[in-house]
């Protein structure tokens, strides 16, 4: 299969993953492109037994992590983004707001996870990777990966439980 066909086949899924990891539409577009360029450069590192999809996910996650780290450095020199502050604050008292946007609430909760927790949970919940696969993608031990998923689930449940009862 030609590289172009792989780009056509995997772009949508990579965008969804990138967006869930970084929470920013434009950044997700950039991450997808950058991830494919990295994939092209690193094709020599690809091991057939790991599966092309997992390999692409690993590159996408790493690219998204790099983006998030850069963003974090930028934000150290700026005030926190008003949008996220608002969302994060809102997430503490969802019952008092009848206009709650569940999607935004969920997104804010996800963005409050650490990068590793978010990546582990996204790969498990939305992409269907096993803990073992996620450990390989994130370059973690299986135990550390499992703990990251557990922490992420606990934090998400705290945020999402009020939404279930409303």
């Amino acid at each position: 299969m030609a590289f172009r066909e792989l780009v056509l086949e995997h772009s949508h899924a990579m965008f969804r993953l990138a967006w869930r990891l970084c929470g920013d539409e434009n950044a997700a577009d950039d991450i997808v492109q950058e991830a494919f360029i990295k994939a092209w450069r690193k094709i020599g590192d690809f091991r057939m037994q790991s599966g092309f999809r997992s390999w692409l996910h690993r590159i996408t996650v790493n690219t998204a992590m790099d983006y998030l780290r850069k963003q974090a450095r930028v934000k150290q020199h700026e005030t926190a983004a008003p949008e996220l502050e608002c969302l994060a604050a809102g997430s503490s008292h969802p019952k008092h707001d009848v206009q709650i946007d569940v999607q935004e609430q969920t997104r804010a909760a996800m963005m409050n996870l650490s990068d590793t927790e978010r990546a582990a949970l996204m790969l498990r919940h939305f992409e269907g990777h096993s803990i073992k696969e996620i450990a390989q993608i994130l370059d973690l031990s299986s135990s550390a990966c499992k703990q990251a998923v557990f922490r992420a689930v606990k934090k998400m449940r705290i945020e999402l439980a009020p939404l279930v009862t409303t």
Partner: peptide, 16 residues
């Protein structure tokens, strides 16, 4: 736990 985690599925990425 299932109900709470299912809430995450409502998070729909922007459409391309």
């Amino acid at each position: 736990l299932s109900s709470e985690l299912l809430r995450m599925d409502e998070l729909m990425p922007p459409v391309r």
